[in-house]
Simulated assay, not measured.
Amino acid sequence: MASTTSGDVLPSGSRIFTTIPDVFFIPEFVFGGLVWILVASTRVVPDNPLGWVMFVSVFCFVGTTLWFFIFLCGANQSSVWPSLDVGFHFLAVVFFLSASVDLAYVTFRNGEEYKLTPTDESLKIFRLDIAAVVMSYVATLLYFLHAIFSAIRWKNS
């Protein structure tokens, strides 16, 4: 992978597909979108923690999409963008980590209820919840790596 410590402050255009941390954009789309889809495809009960999970996954998906297109179009060449990049990805890490913990807790608690009434439908929902927890922690890891490498790039710029 190419480094962006010399020349432009941040990569733009097709260079974002070959530089660290920008190569994490696509996996963030995939895993963040999967969290959104998996949680939305089950019952959103209880409303409060799973509503937070839905907000975080939609917010980060839309934010990453906007960030990706800003980088792709090359509108990120002023000196403020490296710090904004770190800030956005740090916020995404904090949000996704809190949502992942909430989702894991709700899934664990629902798993205890599913054991009491084992049906095919409850098993399907429980498996979807487990998949959502795994995808949520993977998305958290990807945003964390993106934030760390963005902070390194910001420090070197």
Rank of each mutant, 00 (worst) to 15 (best):
H89N: 15
N156M: 14
V30W: 02
S122L: 13
D102V: 04
G7D: 11
F108V: 10
M1Q: 02
L145P: 03
T64F: 02
S122R: 15
L123F: 13
V94G: 04
S79A: 13
N110K: 13
V133M: 01
V62F: 14
L72E: 08
K124D: 12
L84T: 02
M54P: 05
T18E: 12
I20P: 01
V86K: 02
F29E: 04
F55T: 11
A131H: 01
F31Q: 01
L128Q: 10
V58Q: 05
D102K: 07
F55D: 07
M54W: 10
F59V: 11
T140F: 13
P118K: 03
R153W: 09
R43T: 15
C73D: 10
D47I: 07
F55M: 13
V134C: 12
F71P: 00
V94M: 09
F68R: 02
S78E: 10
T140K: 01
L145N: 09
V80S: 12
R127V: 08
F17K: 03
M135E: 13
D8R: 12
I125T: 13
W81D: 03
A147P: 03
S57F: 00
E28S: 12
R15H: 13
T65N: 02
P21S: 04
V30I: 14
T65P: 00
P27C: 03
R127W: 11
T117H: 08
C73Y: 07
W154K: 11
F17G: 00
L123H: 06
D22F: 14
P46E: 10
I26N: 03
L72A: 14
S14M: 08
C73G: 06
S6K: 12
A99K: 10
C60N: 14
F55E: 11
S78R: 02
F25C: 02
P49E: 09
A132I: 13
F108R: 07
F68N: 00
L103R: 11
F88R: 01
D47K: 06
M54E: 15
T119K: 03
R153M: 10
S41M: 07
F17E: 00
M1I: 12
V80H: 07
F69P: 14
W67E: 14
A2D: 12
K124F: 05
V134M: 07
F144Y: 07
I125W: 00
S79I: 02
A40V: 00
I20D: 02
S157Y: 09
V53M: 06
L84M: 15
Y137A: 08
L66T: 14
F17L: 08
S78A: 13
V44P: 13
L123P: 02
F144A: 14
S3L: 09
E113N: 08
F95W: 05
P49Y: 04
W67I: 05
R43D: 14
F144D: 00
P21D: 09
M1E: 14
S157F: 06
P11D: 01
R127C: 15
G87D: 11
H89K: 01
F25W: 00
V134E: 05
V58Y: 04
V80M: 08
A147G: 04
S57P: 11
M54G: 07
F24A: 01
G74Q: 08
P11N: 06
A99S: 14
S57H: 05
